[in-house]
Each structure stands twice: as C-alpha cells, then as structure tokens.
C-alpha cells in the first residue's frame, strides 16, 4: 500500500511547480443582472484541503465549476500554475483541465463501462483518441490504475461494470479516476451528498488520505459542517454569492454559521 501511494507522489512532486490557485474578481451570472457569484477573491495554497460551506444555491458549485470552466465565468481571473484559466480555449484548456481532477456528487461514471475503463477515462486527456478507442492504454497507466484500485479498496472490481457498484463504491472509483489524471489540484463538488453518513466519512477520509500522500491541494464543496471541520485545513463560508468566512476550522464559531446559513433553527 505504501509503495503505491508514494510512487506517483514522488513523480508529481518532481514537477515542483507552485500549485496555489488565485481567484480574482470572479463574477458569474447565468441570467443577466442576477449574479450568482460577485467579486470572489481567494488564494488557495498549494496544499491542504479547503472546504467551501454554505447553504444550497449560494454559488459553491458554480465557483468550483468556474475553476475548470465547466461553467463559463462572466468576468475575473483564475490563475493556476502561472496561467489564467479563464482565458484558455481549445487544446490549451484541455491541457489545463487534465491537471485538475474532479469528483462529482453523482459520481458521473460512464455506467456501461467497466471500472477499469472508467479509471482510464482519467487518462483521456493524455492518450490519443485511437489508443482510447482500441483500449491500447500505456502499460504504465494500467499499472497506475490497478495501484489506485487497490488503494481505494476495489482491487477485485476492475472488470465489473460501473452500474453494478453501490454509491460508496462508485465514489471510490470517481476519486480514483480523478487521481489517474495525476492532478495538481483536486476539485470535489459535494462528493458526499448522495451518500449515507458512514460512507460519507469513509469517502472524505479516503480523499484526504490519498491527496495528502500525494500532496495534492483539494477544494471541496460540502454542506456537512461536521465533515468540513473534521477533514479540512481551511474553511471558506459562502452566502449569497460572497465569501463571509475564511479561516481554519477551529476558528469557525456558531456566530459564523449563523451568518452563513442565516437563523439558528438548523442547529
């Protein structure tokens, strides 16, 4: 286990670049005049797990999706590893995206493909189309996939179809797929919201452990404050498209939560 965890970490550390992410004056409006995000300014260090908390519909998901441009920002800059992601197009955007892994709430696996093929989907940004078509992935990729499957505890599931898995197993595959990209940043959009409480803790634990071993910074949207407190090194509280709290989890007090979520009923 320890070998499989450290080997890719060493490889990515060799890249040595600064993995911090800087967001400046980020705005997003889906409908003109109705801002979802207003003037977001954040710098996320190149390590640790940053949790974004806030009520639903407050733009957490939009913020995360603006970073890898699944959602087009309306204005502002997103600087990552010396590039403004907001300005990239075509091949340059794809090259930037493959350095950013993403874990989804609904897992977003290709249901009718095997677990192994879903993992290798994480390599599609690197592998030419014809190789993907013929399933002639480089042996190194397949080895890395098996190592990751072992690491997430699904070593015997390689040839199973994804739709035969439980929710927790699917999210493990989702995490493994994101890590197959050998990312310099991992985004997770509500990774535990479709899971039961016990599995949620397991998934967060797994994500924290695997990214910690590889020293990959993580930005995770999460509505469960307890999970955020337990696994995050930094908590960002959002409400109404603005950042209202930013600090270590220990500094998060009930008055902050009241500000973020409004009212006290939920406590």
């Amino acid at each position: 286990m320890s070998q499989t965890d450290t080997a890719p970490a060493a490889a990515t550390a060799a890249a040595g670049a600064d993995r911090s992410l800087t967001i400046r004056h980020l705005d997003k409006e889906y409908v003109r005049g109705k801002a979802v995000l207003r003037d977001i300014n954040l710098t996320i260090d190149g390590r640790g797990l940053t949790a974004i908390i806030g009520p639903s519909g407050t733009g957490k998901s939009t913020l995360i999706r603006c970073i890898n441009r699944l959602v087009e920002p309306s204005g502002g800059e997103i600087v990552f590893m010396g590039q403004d992601l907001a300005k990239l197009r075509g091949a340059a955007l794809r090259a930037a995206r493959r350095r950013i892994g993403m874990v989804f709430q609904e897992y977003n696996l290709v249901e009718r493909l095997s677990v192994m093929e879903n993992l290798l989907c994480g390599r599609l940004g690197y592998v030419p189309v014809w190789r993907a078509w013929l399933r002639r992935f480089p042996q190194a990729d397949i080895d890395a996939a098996f190592a990751l499957l072992d690491a997430v505890g699904l070593g015997d599931f390689a040839t199973r179809r994804a739709d035969a898995l439980s929710g927790g197993q699917r999210q493990r595959v989702g995490i493994a797929r994101a890590l197959m990209q050998q990312p310099d940043l991992l985004l997770a959009d509500e990774p535990t919201s479709s899971l039961d409480p016990k599995t949620s803790v397991e998934i967060m634990e797994l994500m924290a452990r695997l990214t910690g071993a590889r020293d990959i910074p993580v930005v995770v949207n999460i509505h469960n404050v307890e999970l955020a407190r337990r696994f995050a090194t930094r908590v960002i509280g959002m409400t109404g498209g603005r950042v209202v709290f930013d600090g270590p989890p220990a500094a998060l007090e009930p008055r902050h939560l009241t500000e973020i979520y409004g009212g006290e009923d939920w406590l």
Binding site: M1, T4, S114, M116, R135, I142, A145, F146, A147, D150
Partner: peptide, 14 residues
C-alpha cells in the same frame, strides 16, 4: 501488492 504484480493482472475482460 506491488506494481509489477499489477501489470500481470487482466485489465479488460475480453
């Protein structure tokens, strides 16, 4: 489980 042993495992069901 070492990476070398992983290489011999079957990745795809034919």
């Amino acid at each position: 489980m070492s990476a070398a042993a992983g290489a011999r495992r079957r990745a795809f069901a034919p």
